[in-house]
Amino acid sequence: MNKKALDIILYGLLLIGMFVSLYLIFQYAPPAINPTNNQTWYEQKIFYVHVSSAWTGFLAFFVVAVASIIFLRNESRIADLVAQTSAEIGIVFTTLTLISGPLWAKSFWGRYWDWSEPRLVTALILWFLYIGYLILRSSVGEDFRRARFAAVFGIIAFLDVPIVFLSVRWYRASHPPLLVFEPGGLDPSMKVAFFFTLFIFTVFYVVLLRNALRIKLLQDELNRLKEVI
């Protein structure tokens, strides 16, 4: 199968997946009951995009760390490109997490942000760390040296990901821990909607990464050919 046919199939499946996800979230999964006032809690549906984008951001930063380790071991240009591209995508999904989170919080806590919440603060630090990573990458200096610095930074920055994830268990916090795998945590139909949305977000990440890498490699080839001509 050639690349174009694969792209068309992948895009078609993603488009269908998006509509299926919307159906599952808004029609199939029932709205939750707000424990603070026992009323129907429609804003809870933000959870599906909030957790899925957070997961995709974490996955992207994990890929940055792995690609950085590979780059430090064998100085592979592809590994360096994967790390840079994955960090860019990770920031987009973490931004979506940081926008959807406060919207959910407003409906539950009555305020958008709480500086005493460890998960919120550590997630914001994570976002700043990877913004710093991209600034480092775009700074002046010799390419290879900069890539090595960025790789080390990318590995160290990833240490914040488990801190974000575990912070609600380590400290007394109002941010709910992920109850998906715990008995009585989520209604079975909510689980279906959640895992399907999570899957679609993950596929989006993979396709975004693949496309961005192809663009960078094609741009490299184009520049090389322009020098020849």
């Binding site: 895009y11 919307l22 808004f26 429609y42 549906k45 979506l96």
Partner: peptide
Amino acid sequence: TLMIAYAVVWAIIFGYLVVQY
């Protein structure tokens, strides 16, 4: 409103994929 917001988010991501393509 929430459903429209979801659709907009999906559309932006998918639109970006089309631009990449």
